[in-house]
């Protein structure tokens, strides 16, 4: 009993520690949401100032990759959810398998986003600066669009990389987790889903708004 319910000395019980950890991660996610807030706000603000040029930029993005990546992330969160449910039933090997799938899907997102999409865009001269390849009236607005694009996707990618590291750590540490005691799996899961949510806001900003008008 006391082994299964090990807890740090400031808590009254393992359950107490678990609840506290979950509160902590929710609060952290609130902070993260406000961290991304100014990007979304200034993005929408800047587009409002020059919508047509922004949309010229938006139409140069690769919708196919964008859709594929969205599917990958949603699937990954789903896989993580299955893994989390399985450890709740004490099925550790099942959890490891599903978390590995989640990890692979996340890694595929990174590969597609930065290995393929970014590379193409960089080679097409879409990175803002003197060599920016969109000319004509929309140049400055499109440039601003791509500034936001690279900035936001880089930051999102960084979060995803950290998430991949955390996932790997959970998989390596899998031995520790039991049906009663798997708080870290839960905590990392919330973070992993949060990254997904950020992407679900970025996706329309990047790929859809420019095509809609």
């Amino acid at each position: 009993m006391s082994d299964a319910a090990a807890h740090e000395f400031q808590f009254a019980s393992a359950e107490h520690q678990r609840e506290t950890a979950i509160s902590g991660i929710w609060l952290f996610l609130a902070t993260e949401a406000l961290f991304f807030g100014p990007i979304f706000l200034s993005w929408i603000f800047a587009r409002h100032a020059d919508p047509s040029a922004f949309d010229v930029g938006g139409r140069r993005t690769d919708l196919t990759i964008g859709l594929a990546n969205t599917a990958l992330l949603i699937a990954s969160s789903f896989a993580y959810g299955v893994g989390l449910a399985l450890i709740g039933f004490g099925r550790r090997r099942g959890m490891v398998a599903w978390l590995a799938i989640a990890w692979a899907l996340g890694a595929a997102f990174i590969g597609l986003k930065f290995g393929v999409e970014w590379r193409t865009e960089l080679s097409e001269g879409l990175f803002p600066g003197a060599h920016f390849s969109i000319h004509g009236p929309a140049r400055s607005g499109a440039q601003l669009f791509f500034a936001f694009y690279f900035f936001a996707t880089a930051l999102h990618g960084l979060h995803l990389l950290i998430g991949l590291g955390l996932l790997a750590w959970i998989i390596i540490q899998a031995e520790r987790f039991t049906a009663e005691n798997h708080t870290p799996v839960h905590v990392v899961g919330l973070y992993w889903t949060f990254i997904d949510v950020i992407w679900l806001i970025l996706f329309p900003l990047i790929y859809l708004i420019g095509r809609a008008s």
Binding site: D50, A53, G136, P137, G141
Partner: peptide
């Protein structure tokens, strides 16, 4: 300074 941003209706920019 930036006519591209404010094209007038009825006139080519």
């Amino acid at each position: 300074l930036t006519p591209d941003k404010t094209p007038i209706a009825g006139y080519p920019q």
